[in-house]
Design a protein around this nucleic acid. Structure first.
Length: 338
RNA sequence: GCCGAGGUAGCUCAGUUGGCAGAGCACAGCCCUGAAAAGGCUGGUGUCGACAGUUCGAUUCUGUCCCUCGGCA
């Protein structure tokens, strides 16, 4: 399906999101075929090469049938972040638009999706050397030391963050260190207010119990496919357990077992539990995201049926977009990002 | 049937020398602007097995009963 130039001007974008194990990837492949487009993954973990089973990447056959972009971008010991993601994703979307295609973004990383459709403040990425020195100081002077430092340079942000939330406190200190300005002020200026795309957000929703059953089943399937062996290979290549990528679900728990910290059964129990907790956090995030069109799906509902319901929604979206003369009348009102 | 141990939160259990019950796990709610599958916060009313007695007051003491698990028959 090609879309017309007048439509392309509006930069239409379809995003398929939802918690882990809800079946996004399966639906996405069929949706992409129907729309004659590609799958742009919005998953902070599928960017790592060699992490296939744990990150539940689509199979090679699936990737053969429909091009998947924005996966396998870096090695597990390389850093990646929301800013890079946005940069690359915008380029892919642009490429598809130029070819008259409707871009389809699929994923469960809430921040990446938000960053893509509403932007990020224009700041520096991580300074790992500085972060490590802050962590070292925190170890030496106590848990509240970082928070006290942040109170000195950015009291507004410090007031908003819990004293134990070291990751976000460190980002605030880092920004002040690099730019000399409080992060809270830069955030306020950005405000997530602008969207450069006309976006349809489709959320796949499943009732909690059946989603949890799906998670358990998927973990069992991942183990069967060789999650443990994959973890061993990654460790053997020298990827340390402390790496962000190795802290991903699956590798973290398997590495704990391999290090003799707990039994295999305990690793499996933890993996299932942690995956449930993760799914829950995803749902909390998405609940707050505005303008998501939720598709409730039944436990035994076929992928075909879900896809056809999603396609109906996409058709309606394109129709609304087409008939709307002023851009503001599009379903997801946009302000063109100057 | 007899002897022993036990019945307290969804689960495993602690505890109350008698004064409106508490941990771990599970579960739920939430925060989030370049680490985001990361990181962080919050949440415990539960006929303390049932009934009766003693007591100002019983989940705690006493009695009877019911149930579970061992052992002996």
């Amino acid at each position: 399906m090609r879309i017309t130039d007048s439509l392309i001007e509006r930069k239409p974008l379809v995003v398929l999101l939802g918690p882990t194990a809800v079946g996004k990837s399966r639906v996405a492949i069929m949706l992409a075929k129907a729309l004659e487009t590609e799958v742009l993954t919005a998953d902070s973990r599928q960017v790592y090469r060699g992490m296939d089973i744990g990150m539940d990447k689509p199979s090679l056959e699936e990737r053969d049938s429909v091009p998947h972009r924005l996966i396998d971008l870096v090695e597990p010991d390389q850093s990646f972040n929301a800013g890079e993601y946005r940069h690359l994703a915008v380029a892919e979307i642009d490429r598809l638009h130029r070819g008259g295609r409707l871009p389809l973004v699929v994923g469960g990383t809430g921040l990446y999706i938000r960053a893509l459709i509403r932007g990020l403040w224009d700041g520096p990425s991580a300074d790992w050397g500085y972060r490590r020195s802050l962590e070292e100081n925190a170890r030496q002077y106590g848990r509240d030391w970082l928070h006290q430092r942040l109170t000195e340079v950015d009291p507004a942000l410090a007031g908003r963050l819990h004293p134990h939330d070291a990751v976000k406190i460190i980002r605030g200190l880092e920004t002040h260190h690099l730019l000399g300005r409080p992060l809270s002020e830069l955030h306020r200026q950005h405000g997530f207010g602008k969207s450069e795309f006309t976006t349809l957000l489709i959320g796949l929703a499943q009732d909690r119990d059946s989603l949890y059953r799906a998670i358990d089943a998927r973990v069992d399937a991942q183990l069967k496919k060789g999650l443990l062996a994959e973890t061993q290979q990654l460790l053997a290549k020298g990827y340390d357990r402390q790496l962000g990528s190795m802290k991903g679900l699956g590798y973290r728990q398997m590495a704990g077992y391999l290090a003799g910290e707990h039994s295999y059964d305990e690793a499996v129990r933890r993996l299932k539990r942690d995956t449930r907790h993760f799914a829950k956090r995803q749902m909390t995030w998405f609940r707050k995201e505005p303008d998501i069109h939720w598709l409730p799906i039944a436990e035994n509902e076929s992928t075909d049926r879900v896809v056809s319901r999603a396609l109906d929604r996409v058709d309606r979206f394109l129709g609304e977009c087409r008939s709307a003369t002023p851009i503001a009348a599009c379903p997801n009102p946009v302000m063109i990002n100057g």
